[in-house]
Design a protein around this nucleic acid. Sequence first.
DNA 1: TTGTAAGCGTTATCAG
DNA 2: CTGATAACGCTTACAA
Lengths: 358, 358
Amino acid sequence: MSRTGKTTLADIATKTGYGTNTVSLALRGSTRISQEARDIIAKAAADLDYVPNNSAKSLVLKKSHTVGMLVEYLTNPQPTAVATELQREMSERGYGVLFATSSTPEQETAAIEMFRRHGVDGLLIYPVDHTSIEHLRKLRARNFPVVMLVGMRDTGLDAVGVDEFQASYDATTHLIALGHTKIGALGPLVDKPLKIDGFRHAHRVHGLPLDERQIVEPVGFSMGAGYDGMRELVAREFGLTALFASSDMYGLGAMRWAKDNGVSVPEQLSIVGYDNIEFGEFSHTSLTSVRNDGATLAKAAVERLMQLIDCDAKLPAPTLNLLPGELIIRESSARPGARSWVNTDQAQANRAQISAKK
Amino acid sequence: MSRTGKTTLADIATKTGYGTNTVSLALRGSTRISQEARDIIAKAAADLDYVPNNSAKSLVLKKSHTVGMLVEYLTNPQPTAVATELQREMSERGYGVLFATSSTPEQETAAIEMFRRHGVDGLLIYPVDHTSIEHLRKLRARNFPVVMLVGMRDTGLDAVGVDEFQASYDATTHLIALGHTKIGALGPLVDKPLKIDGFRHAHRVHGLPLDERQIVEPVGFSMGAGYDGMRELVAREFGLTALFASSDMYGLGAMRWAKDNGVSVPEQLSIVGYDNIEFGEFSHTSLTSVRNDGATLAKAAVERLMQLIDCDAKLPAPTLNLLPGELIIRESSARPGARSWVNTDQAQANRAQISAKK
DNA sequence: TTGTAAGCGTTATCAG
DNA sequence: CTGATAACGCTTACAA
């Protein structure tokens, strides 16, 4: 045993009397080694509690059997579930997953740097800014496998993800079909524009005018941000009767705002969320939302990454795998109610309060 | 450049005309190398986009600068937030985090095996079964650093975590102090007994009789499981007016059950959760819950792990770091209301339905 | 201040 | 079927 207390091939070799490479071969089940020798060696390995040294293996094979997984945050249960699935899938294939979160481009760069140091064989990434991915393209150009977990077109990268644009279009269309004409939206504008783009597209297609005031970008990613965003939307007084929230977290935050301000959902305010998290399903008023199949997404992403990793030659042309999102209609969305609430005393008082804070 | 396309020390050496070890030393900022040489070498490294090979380094240093992080699942936002913090803390110290989830002891064993293969320097673990941790003790006995993320006494392991027993005692005491005498509980009994133990302890201390029927172990970890557990508790007909849920997810599931069955919270049913997740805070009826400071927990756990890793000699005696939980009282808990609901028509109908299903 | 040589644990090549 | 030997990229004596 070496001084670190770890058993090595050499230990097994001396114990069994075979050479180290015979041991190596035997442990990997090579038929070039006699069955007898394989048995003896396997037993010795078990006795000595042998665990292969992945570093040594990586060094010679130039493969670490490790991939990096980089997500923006684990606050949102949906991507978190995907992350869990990704790890499971990689694990089944004998890969370890180094993980990191990054909420700024700088952190993202630092994490990727860390991954490279650790010699990961590939990268699964949900980038902070979906619109600036030049650094990822550069990695790919150097033949480094990268799979982006966003269903975005024309990235020059391998991408697997839900068709956010289409799903958001569908969600908005659902509200329009119900008869809503003044729909507010809560979601990112610059970093991750797909959902709001889909929201806009639905207005265009259905000939509904859209004012920029109808869109608010919440500050941060949390229910509190959704709560504040809702307050801001209402303060803009365009008479909204429905909300498209780019995430259930925003939607649920907005729902609590409604409760605090005497606005009933869905009678006076319809809300459609995105991600279909369990918290929305079991909310006091269950939340209409866009379901995406995280398990399928994870499986597809991992499969693509493995293809890229197992490709010895130059990487093939990037592939886009767009998965469908499914709108699940629940209690929070309905036809616009008769009762208007934008001019109730409660709402008036509330707006006064907002103005006072500014 | 080696054929994998990665720059090595040797590449920098040939480019600059220095020897490889001079380069190695220079890159690590050794003063044994002239300032001039260091500058030249640093520039060359940057030009060639040099990234150190961690495998090679690990091999010679016998340190992978990687730790394993094993959690049961990332469904619950609270431990998930802790996991994120743990990664951040380790990252700041230059460590990579290999992560895995395990929901069965077998998966746990497999994950630990995987970690060992990858030569992790230590392990942060939230074990599946808090009562059978012999395998972790064995690791420690072999001088392998393990920090358990559970505030449990007498484990023979290093442990950092919230004092779940005390916090659960406090939460239950809060309900008792409000005047509740028939309190149901939703939580794990065997695997993770601390919270229910605290619940029991509160009954003992305050001289309140407790029937085993008052405790239900939900099947699985989800809001749905809490919902079903609540239904089961009510079906047992001991006249409960309050619920202690070992997790906000259970508590929120139970709250939705109450809504579906015309039981108002807190007038007819008080609910206290655990974990203080944002979903509880922004719930229609905000949830009284036990707050634990995930950031502090993560910091303390990482600090302890680093101590163990940096200790060349035999590992010091295990340490227990119990952090306090703080009860945050919100809308979901109140004095028992005048209106009884256990015998309302609604409840009767509901119970009939439950019986029919069996 | 810098270079040389050995070794970390594994796999691959090539003999025997 | 099995055993030397070299190599992977890096660090650490030890020499120069």
